[in-house]
Nucleic acid binder design. Structure first.
Lengths: 142, 142
DNA sequence: GTTGACCTTAGAGTCAACTCTAAGCTTATA
DNA sequence: TATAAGCTTAGAGTTGACTCTAAGGTCAAC
């Protein structure tokens, strides 16, 4: 049985974050001491580690909430539900990557075009490019 | 001279956003009608388009604020100041891309490992991987 | 027996960049 | 002239994931 600071040390989450996750039903402390201190058993610890692993991969708390409800009752859920969540996350990640690569590209071009020296910025090609509307791609309603 | 909705149409920003940018000193309306309506002249419009271009590339409002102060007094600033801002942004973008690629990688591995079918999730390999601590990389204090 | 580290709670604050609301003028159109 | 579209303001709300605060109770060590 671990106290909250011990669970924090074990998972790499802060005690604050653990309480915050509890409020959102992601982590539970099966027991409490008489004084109200949280105590985490093995099952609680595994659940907390599951949450941390999912978080590291980039799943949102909402995603994790769904994954947890699958985890606690595996026979009522299919693999497809799990892959749907995972695929959806991958789609999001892929989209963000392309947005960022587009920015990366433009930034690299801008950097190459500019001397970057102590010269006055009077004819700075980066400023000029922005004035000319150095358009990459409108990120729209993303 | 354009009214706010016309500037909005021209730049692709919303009127709300234009007012919001004004509050943050990014965009100005050089004139106002007697009733208080904003009117944008050519210089205002170019400034607004500069802001939009910089925003599309991914610069923060804070970055843009700096770029604008260079733009309005180019002789007091050097190209190096501009490339510093740009390089810093590129570094940020590069870091986010690697984080996302790490997530992408893990998600792809997870998806490949799972049947994704209508089978019960009893032995779902994605859930199992998360239980085993499918660690990618701690995103730390980023 | 007292310091200091640790725990509790409810609730507020943070960040960035919007986005919206309410209440009330102004202007253009039919 | 009436209606609708458009403009004004200050200020509040949104999103997601924390992060911190205040005020106080608990526990281990010296």
């Amino acid at each position: 049985m671990l106290k909250i600071s011990e669970l924090a040390a074990k998972t790499g989450l802060s005690a604050h974050t653990i309480r915050f996750y509890e409020k959102h039903d992601l982590i539970r402390a099966s027991e409490r001491s008489e004084a109200g201190y949280r105590y985490y058993n093995d099952s609680d610890i595994r659940r907390a580690e599951f949450v941390k692993a999912a978080r590291n991969i980039g799943f949102s708390l909402e995603d994790i909430s769904q994954l947890l409800s699958i985890r606690v009752d595996k026979t009522s859920h299919s693999c497809q539900e799990v892959t749907d969540i995972t695929q959806h996350k991958l789609d999001e990640v892929n989209e963000k990557i392309s947005e960022l690569e587009s920015m990366q590209n433009t930034l690299q071009i801008l950097l190459k075009s500019c001397c970057g020296g102590p010269e006055k910025a009077t004819h700075c090609s980066i400023i000029e490019a922005l004035e000319a509307g150095a358009v990459v791609k409108d990120r729209g309603a993303a």
